[in-house]
Structure formats: C-alpha cells, structure tokens
Amino acid sequence: MNDRQFFIDYSRCIGCQSCVQACGECDTHRGTSMIHLETIERIDSVQTAPQVCMHCEDPVCARVCPADAIKKTPDGVVQSSLKPRCIACSNCVVSCPFGVPKYMAEFEQMMKCDMCYDRTSVDKKPMCATVCPSGALMFTTMEEIQRTRMGIPVNSWKFGQEEVKTKVYVMVPRAVERVNIDLVQITPTPASLPVDPYDIALMLEVLQ
C-alpha cells in the first residue's frame, strides 16, 4: 500500500456535491452514493461537511455485526458488508459513531464507503478525492498536507468515554490533539452498572 492517507478538511467544504456524484459513479456501486454530505446548523449557516467512512482501527460496526459480514483489510480499510453474509439487521448503522453505514432497502444490505478499495489498493485516489474542487477531501501524503495547510491532521476521537482511532484524518486547529465529543447519557451503560454475578457471557470470557 502507498504512503498516502485520506484527509478531511470540513471547513473547506463548499457543498458542491461533486464528491456525492463521483461516489455514485464508481463501478462497484454504480448509481448509489456512499458519501453523506451533512448540513451543519442549517438555520444559521450554509456550511456543509462531507462524511466518508473513517475506517476505525477497531471498527465497532464489524464488532457488532452478528453475521460476520464486515471485514478489515491488512492495510486498515474497513470494507462494505459482504453481500452473502449481510442480514440487513442495521446493528452497524446504529453503532457507528460517525453515522456512516447506510441500510439500503432496495438491496437489503448495508453499504458504506470502502475508500474506493478497487482504486486505492492500486495507488489511485478515491473517486471523491479526485473531484473535490476545494481540497476538503484529500488523498495525499502526511508531509504534503502539513506543508500546505494551517491546521494539523488528527485521527484520535473521544465519544463520551469511548476512544476511537481512525485511519482517516481530519484537519483541526493546531491546539487540538483529539476531537472530543461529549455525549448525553440518557440510559445507564454496562460500565456504570454493578457487575451481574450471573452474567453468563462474562463468565465464559473469564473462563477463556
């Protein structure tokens, strides 16, 4: 694999939808775009932000998949669901902290960005990064991005108590080392509850 990385600079997005269109032209999922182009604070701003899969080091979508349908390649790219295995349960859709996986009802399958693995595995840029006119989506080397941008790339996130490391970097101001996102705790989590002495799954884990 090449030494180029994927960088997202949300502040540079101009909402032109080029990435959405380009993604939909990919041969592996022709006609269906895997990119979410989000509008932020729609009342006050016209700012948009592209969201591709961040390719977590420990992908929670794959962890929660009951059908073993989501796989990570040796170079760290988390693939879209395997069609013969996906049971369209949408566990991954609700578990992803970035809201990336999409349940496609017409195919009865979860589909998501796989960083154009057919292209990036042969040292080509992903479709979206080839067309982005403002450099919000870049597929380049770390040295190049540091040389040309004001901010710094980070790939460390914290959602509530959960730390996440991703393959894809986002550009943030220099003071930021990790993107912290506070979550409102509305229901107790397993961590906040006392340990259930009769939890069979826990017993099995300990025995192993």
Binding site: P59, A62, R63, D68, I70, K71, K72, T73, P74, Q79, L204, E205, Q208
Partner: peptide, 17 residues
C-alpha cells in the same frame, strides 16, 4: 490483551477470515 473468543472465531481482520 487477550482477544475475546468471539473475535478469535469470527475475526474482523480480512486475513483471519
């Protein structure tokens, strides 16, 4: 850190699969 049995049986890594 020991890998849970579930991940040993159904590895997320492509190579393991």
């Amino acid at each position: 850190v020991k890998t849970p049995q579930s991940l040993q049986d159904f590895p997320i890594e492509w190579e393991g699969d």
